[in-house]
């Protein structure tokens, strides 16, 4: 028993303590969070724009050219693996750019935007049609009705699935090692190959992801509850 404990302690030391390796995990986590944070913001912006494009209709109810473009965008992004999108961005589209962070944020933001677009669209469609009819009947324009009436109500609808999308995005960033970014996953991988010791670094990284996402979940729950409260329902 004691021998086993000593062995675990030694492995732990090699994985986290020796040569201040714990600092590497923190640095890696920083990279992961930075990519996820900016990609989430970019995804939210792109997603909202694409959703509004997809919802636009002509006066006769037919799809606009914008709606068609949005459809193609969503189809292409959802129809290809995000690893490939990242590699294409790194080696082809932005091959002259050596800033891995920028490429990663762009690639993940564009990817997330397609999923966010469908979430936002569903959230907007879930707002009762009478709300926009009432707005329009008062003389408000389409966009005024959207901004003052529909979107504030849609935000409440989309919060749970958006939270889910953020979580997926955070974990998806684990593939940035492909474009030579040293995030949390790659850090763990490097340390395990350097120390010939896979267990501690990999499980350690998994625990860190888990804790971060748990914190994110709790925060989102709180936000959701607060929004529901102001609902007076």
């Amino acid at each position: 028993m004691q021998a086993w404990l000593e062995e675990v302690g030694r492995r732990f030391e090699v994985a986290f303590i020796t040569g201040d390796r714990w600092k590497l995990y923190i640095k890696g986590l920083g990279v992961t969070l930075e990519i996820a944070f900016f990609a989430a913001i970019l995804g939210l912006i792109i997603g909202t724009i694409i959703a509004l494009m997809k919802l636009s209709t002509k006066r006769n109810g037919k799809k606009t050219i914008w709606a068609r473009i949005a459809n193609v965008y969503i189809d292409v992004i959802r129809g290809t693996p995000s690893v490939l999108q990242l590699l294409i961005m790194w080696f082809i589209i932005m091959s002259s750019c050596k800033n891995g962070m920028l490429v990663a944020v762009l690639s993940f933001g564009i990817n997330s935007g397609a999923y966010v677009a469908e979430i936002v669209r569903a959230g907007i469609l879930a707002v009762d049609k009478g709300q926009s009819e009432a707005g329009r009947s008062l003389g408000l324009s389409k966009s005024q009705t959207m901004i003052y009436i529909i979107i504030p109500q849609a935000v409440k609808n989309v919060l749970p699935p958006i939270g889910n999308e953020f979580i997926v995005l955070l974990k998806e960033t684990a593939i940035v090692g492909y474009v030579s970014m040293t995030d949390l996953t790659r850090t763990a991988n490097q340390i395990s190959s350097r120390t010939f010791e896979a267990f501690m670094p990999l499980i350690g990284a998994a625990v860190i992801y888990f804790v971060i996402i748990k914190i994110l979940t709790v925060l989102l729950d709180k936000l959701e509850r607060r929004l529901r409260k102001s609902d007076n329902r």
Partner: peptide, 13 residues
């Protein structure tokens, strides 16, 4: 002006 069967007051305001 228009008044609807289902009132359609703006729920967020």
């Amino acid at each position: 002006g228009m008044v609807f069967q289902n009132f359609n007051l703006f729920n967020n305001l």
